[in-house]
């Protein structure tokens, strides 16, 4: 497994464990955890807190026929639905394959200028998540954020004001961070990026293009 230097925060892990993140963020968190044993173990602890909390409240009662109704439900669906099979050895961990296709070759990229390509994934509309492909040595347009942005590296690496990010590393940016990620020379850098508000570009040209490219 790759050596991962940049991890999820407690706040994000708690929100993912409790099911309170937008779907787009859940995709990024589930993909990071698939690559990161440390965050997987931390998630286990946050889910255990949920277990302890749920176990304490016995104040509600069910209708009298609830057990019979549930047994009828079990009889009506005798088999659990088959598990979806995922491609082994893909650049995309299993949860991402469900949104983006089995591997890089299945992505429907759209060029957004400067050799950068993106593919927006289908999720609920309270936040958005996209794959980005940045040519080695190229910079992402300089941008700030109105909300939170998560960027997870899947292939290649980038650097910005916060350090170096390679496969499995996740950068968590908020309003305060204006950053300019630059892909390392060599292979294209493939990232998974989620935002809960449109990015603010500081240059004039990217801002004009913004409504058209959907960043």
């Amino acid at each position: 497994m790759d050596r991962i230097e940049h991890h999820l925060t407690d706040e994000l892990l708690m929100a993912y464990a409790s099911g309170n993140l937008p779907e787009a963020f859940n995709v990024v968190v589930a993909t990071h955890i698939s690559l990161c044993d440390e965050c997987r173990a931390r998630l286990g602890a946050f889910e255990a807190i949920g277990g302890a909390l749920i176990d304490e409240d016995a104040s509600v009662t069910l209708s009298e026929d609830a057990l019979a109704a549930t047994l009828a439900l079990i009889d009506a669906t005798p088999e659990a639905p088959a598990e979806i099979r995922h491609k082994l050895g893909s650049v995309f961990p299993a949860p991402l394959q469900d949104y983006a296709g089995a591997d890089l070759d299945d992505v429907k990229w759209r060029a957004i200028g400067g050799g950068v390509k993106q593919a927006v994934l289908q999720t609920s509309d309270d936040a958005t998540v996209r794959l980005l492909s940045i040519p080695g040595g190229a910079a992402m347009p300089d941008h700030g954020h109105n909300g939170m942005e998560l960027t997870l590296v899947l292939k290649g690496a980038f650097r910005d004001e916060d350090g170096r990010f390679a496969r499995g590393d996740i950068e968590i940016a908020d309003e305060d961070l204006h950053h300019t990620p630059v892909a390392e020379h060599g292979e294209d850098c493939i990232c998974l990026a989620a935002t809960d508000a449109p990015l603010r570009f500081r240059g004039l040209l990217p801002r004009m293009a913004q409504p058209f490219v959907g960043i």
């Binding site: 995709v27 589930a30 961990p93 991402l96 469900d98």
Partner: peptide, 12 residues
Amino acid sequence: LRRQRRPEPEEL
């Protein structure tokens, strides 16, 4: 309640 899919981490 939310009518959303839930992406789960890959099984070990």
